[in-house]
């Protein structure tokens, strides 16, 4: 059996060896971090960003069939919130915006195949795809909201007991309404065949509240309906920009540009402009 002193010496020796190992590991980690940081900052490995610079354009895929985000004007040109948003970002980078019209279900495949640099097309966030593509922070929340007339005492779903709640029959809002009614059977659902008619029911006083998606809400508000969303989204559906996974510079540029557009109020102005110019057609 070793003496206590000998044991202490062994432990010190082991600790010394451990410290050296730890320091070596730390050194390697710092070196790797610096290399990665340098690569990102210099953009040496972002082939997408490099291609955009050589080409002088940002090649964006979109399906121009979803007003007010993207649609075709009378001359067949894509217009809409997403078009203006992408153009503003491209301008900030000194690039032209190049729009590639594709079917909605083919957008991500086109990105993965390198046919386009990004997708800007009211694209809902899909966590399952984050292994293959990168996403920007959300720029629009399209999920189900609880909506009430301005001045309503209802401030959240707790206030819906005994209330009449309008929904588009069969929609995600209807599904949320039925879930809420399971917990609070006194909620009366007012089913309407379209989102516009559900909004009209609220405005006409046939309902006390409304469960509707963010796009319909934005359209109604932009056209002067005195209604407002209360509480957080009851079912989130954020729209994001999809980017190549191996494009760290482009990802950072998109993130910064979106933040800048949001802080300057430009994004809100784009929303107001395009939602106001699109009509709700019952």
């Amino acid at each position: 059996m070793r003496s206590l002193g000998a044991r202490a010496a062994v432990w010190r020796e082991r600790a010394g060896r451990g410290s050296i190992g730890l320091l070596a590991l730390l050194g390697v980690g710092i070196l790797a971090g610096l290399l990665l940081l340098g690569r990102d900052l210099l953009g040496s490995e972002d082939l997408t960003w490099q291609a955009m610079q050589r080409r002088g354009s940002w090649r964006v895929g979109m399906d121009p069939s979803f007003p007010p985000f993207e649609m075709l004007d009378e001359t067949g040109q894509p217009v809409g919130l997403d078009v203006d948003l992408a153009r503003a970002m491209a301008q900030e980078w000194g690039l032209e915006l190049e729009i590639v019209s594709l079917g909605f279900d083919g957008l991500v495949d086109a990105l993965l195949a390198g046919k386009i640099d990004s997708v800007v097309s009211a694209l809902p966030y899909d966590p399952r795809l984050t292994q293959d593509i990168a996403y920007s922070p959300p720029y629009f929340e399209a999920g189900v909201r609880l909506v009430v007339p301005q001045g309503s005492p209802i401030q959240d779903v707790q206030g819906l007991a005994g209330m009449r709640v309008a929904v588009e029959w069969g929609s995600a809002g209807d599904a949320v309404g039925r879930r809420l009614r399971r917990e609070e059977p006194s909620i009366q659902l007012i089913l309407r065949p379209s989102p516009e008619e559900a909004v009209a029911a609220l405005l006409a006083g046939d309902a006390d509240a409304l469960l509707i998606d963010g796009v319909t809400l934005g359209l109604a508000q932009a056209q002067g309906a005195a209604i407002q969303a209360v509480g957080p989204p009851l079912e989130s559906d954020p729209y994001v920009i999809a980017l190549p996974l191996d494009a760290p510079v482009l990802q950072e540029r998109v993130r910064a540009a979106l933040a800048s557009l949001r802080e300057s109020g430009a994004l809100a102005r784009l929303e107001a402009r395009w939602f106001a110019s699109s009509e709700m057609t019952p």
């Binding site: 399906d63 069939s65 588009e168 069969g170 065949p193």
Partner: peptide, 16 residues
């Protein structure tokens, strides 16, 4: 189908 964007889709109420 009641997808909000698919060209061959209908409104959810129509689908029902």
């Amino acid at each position: 189908n009641d997808h909000p964007r698919w060209t061959k889709a209908v409104r959810p109420s129509q689908r029902i």
